[in-house]
Computed example of a mutant assay.
Amino acid sequence: MTMATRFIENKSQDCLRTKAAKVALVQVLETLTPTSVIGIGTGATVEVFVKLLAESNATFSHCVSSSERSSKALEVAGLVTKPIAESSSLDFYIDGIDEGLNNGVTVKGGGAALAREKVLATQASTFITIADDSRLVEKLGIFPLPIEILPAAKSSVVHTLKTMGGVPKEREGCVTDNGNIILDVSGLDMMKPKQLELHLNSMPGVVENGIFAYRSADLMVFSNAEGSYCLFEK
């Protein structure tokens, strides 16, 4: 993916999440139609987007949520939703990131919804990420990589990850909406994210990992104290 940068001056006192979410909303509203379907990720940043979307009174078909947490946020906002199990295609998917490269490759899963998030991102015609610019990194691996696994496979997967140089740690008190557990793994070589994404998902017991390389972002919105900027595909 070839990316270009577009700066958007916004020196308001909005928090960084709001600045990024407002820019993403503008991008969505430009092509939104009454039949559009919007996928919603998980986390505090995307919940700001949900609130702004509801306040915009935009006309579209419905939202599809990646988690029970986001479903509750959509319900509170009064937006129409349909279950992810009934979804096969989206016009937009909006989500935060834990870290990302300027080519659209990201790591997600801090909210423990990475498996459903990847389903929705893959279904979407346009995948938009929103974050403050501390999440934009030169190389992946600063944020431990979340991997969702079957509980029965914990010992096997941990052993395999250690042979790869990884340092896996089970996320305490975390059970995903799918009934699984999360391993947060540091120390892995992430210089080739596509290959690593595929390799991790080939391990028996692994449900999904948090590398979004095969389905990278089409538009990345970052904010800082000076405003917001977009990294987008040419």
Rank of each mutant, 00 (worst) to 15 (best):
T2I: 08
N10T: 02
Q13H: 08
D14I: 01
D14W: 12
L16A: 00
L16E: 00
R17K: 15
V23F: 00
A24F: 03
L25C: 03
T31Q: 00
T31K: 07
L32I: 09
T35P: 04
V37D: 00
I38T: 08
I40M: 15
T42P: 10
T42Y: 06
T42C: 10
G43P: 00
E47M: 05
V50C: 09
K51A: 01
K51Q: 11
A54S: 14
A54W: 01
S56D: 01
N57I: 00
A58M: 02
F60R: 06
S67A: 06
R69W: 00
S70I: 12
A73H: 11
E75V: 08
L79G: 04
T81F: 01
S88P: 01
S88C: 11
S89A: 15
D91L: 00
Y93F: 15
I94F: 05
D95Y: 12
G96D: 02
L101M: 06
L101N: 06
G104H: 01
K108I: 03
K108A: 06
G109S: 05
G111W: 02
G111T: 05
L114H: 11
L114I: 08
E117S: 04
E117L: 08
A121T: 08
F127D: 07
I130P: 00
D132W: 08
D133E: 07
L136A: 12
V137T: 11
V137C: 13
V137F: 11
E138G: 15
K139G: 01
I142Q: 06
F143L: 01
P144T: 05
P146H: 04
E148R: 07
L150N: 07
P151R: 09
S155T: 14
S155G: 05
S156E: 07
V158P: 02
V158A: 13
T160Q: 14
M164G: 02
G165A: 10
G166E: 13
V167E: 15
P168R: 07
R171E: 12
E172T: 09
G173A: 09
I181L: 11
I181S: 07
I182G: 00
L188C: 05
D189V: 08
K192N: 10
P193T: 04
L196P: 01
L196A: 03
E197C: 02
H199I: 12
P204T: 10
A213F: 11
A213M: 09
R215P: 09
A217V: 06
D218Y: 08
D218L: 13
D218E: 14
L219K: 14
V221G: 15
C230R: 12
C230E: 13
L231T: 12
